Simulated assay, not measured.
Amino acid sequence: MDLPALDLAQPTPAPQGVNTQGLADFLRRFFAPLFLVIVSVVALFFLFTREITRFVQFIILAIAIGVIFYVPNIIEVTAKAIAVALGISVG
């Protein structure tokens, strides 16, 4: 006699981890336009108030942040480097 309750007692396979295959692409597509709008508004504010030093500092910071979002694989490489530094095995 086969009972359906016995099927529930079978162990389920453990999850292998979080699937982050498209996470970096999603973040780029989501935040890149928002980032460009914010950079434009703040840069215009600095230009209209004639704060050239802050404008230059802001543009340098914006370029550095832009490199993080637009250079391919930099997020993955940085994440793997941090994981290795923390002693987490990377597959």
Rank of each mutant, 00 (worst) to 15 (best):
V77F: 11
A5E: 13
D25F: 10
A32S: 15
L47A: 14
G66N: 02
A14G: 04
V37Y: 14
I59A: 12
G91E: 12
A85Q: 07
F35C: 03
V77Y: 12
I68D: 05
I60C: 10
A79S: 09
F35Y: 15
A79V: 05
L36N: 10
S89D: 14
A83D: 09
Q21S: 14
V84M: 07
F58W: 11
P4G: 02
V84P: 05
Q16I: 02
N73F: 15
L3C: 04
Y70D: 01
G17T: 02
A62Y: 06
I52S: 10
Y70F: 15
A85P: 00
Q21P: 04
V77Q: 07
F31W: 13
R54M: 09
R50L: 12
V18D: 08
N73C: 03
L23Q: 01
T49F: 06
V84Q: 07
I82N: 01
A43K: 01
L86K: 09
P13Y: 08
N19V: 08
L47M: 14
R28C: 04
A85K: 13
T78S: 11
A24V: 14
V84H: 13
E76M: 08
F30M: 11
F30S: 13
L27A: 06
A62F: 05
F58C: 01
L36W: 13
I75Q: 15
A9G: 06
F30N: 04
R29G: 04
L27E: 00
G91Q: 07
L23H: 03
F48N: 06
E51N: 15
Q57H: 07
S89W: 06
Y70H: 10
K80F: 12
Q21N: 13
A62H: 04
I38E: 08
V42K: 15
E76A: 08
I82K: 03
V90P: 00
I75C: 01
P13F: 11
F26W: 12
N73Q: 13
V42Y: 12
V42D: 02
V42L: 14
P13K: 14
A79I: 08
K80G: 01
F45C: 09
A79R: 04
L8D: 08
L27K: 05
I68V: 14
F58A: 00
V18S: 10
V39G: 02
A24R: 01
D25M: 12
A83F: 06
P33K: 07
R29D: 06
I75W: 08
F48T: 05
L36C: 08
V56C: 09
R29F: 04
F48L: 15
M1T: 06
I68T: 10
G22H: 15
P11T: 04
G87P: 01
F35T: 03
I88D: 02
Q57Y: 13
A5F: 13
A81W: 14
V67N: 11
A9S: 12
A32W: 14
F35M: 00
I88G: 00
P72D: 02
S89E: 15
R50H: 09
A83R: 08
A79Y: 07
G91P: 14
S40L: 15
A9H: 11
A85D: 04
D7W: 08
F69E: 00
A5M: 07
V39P: 00
Q16E: 13
Q16G: 13
G22M: 05
Y70I: 08
N73G: 05
A81E: 09
Q57D: 07
V77S: 11
R50W: 11
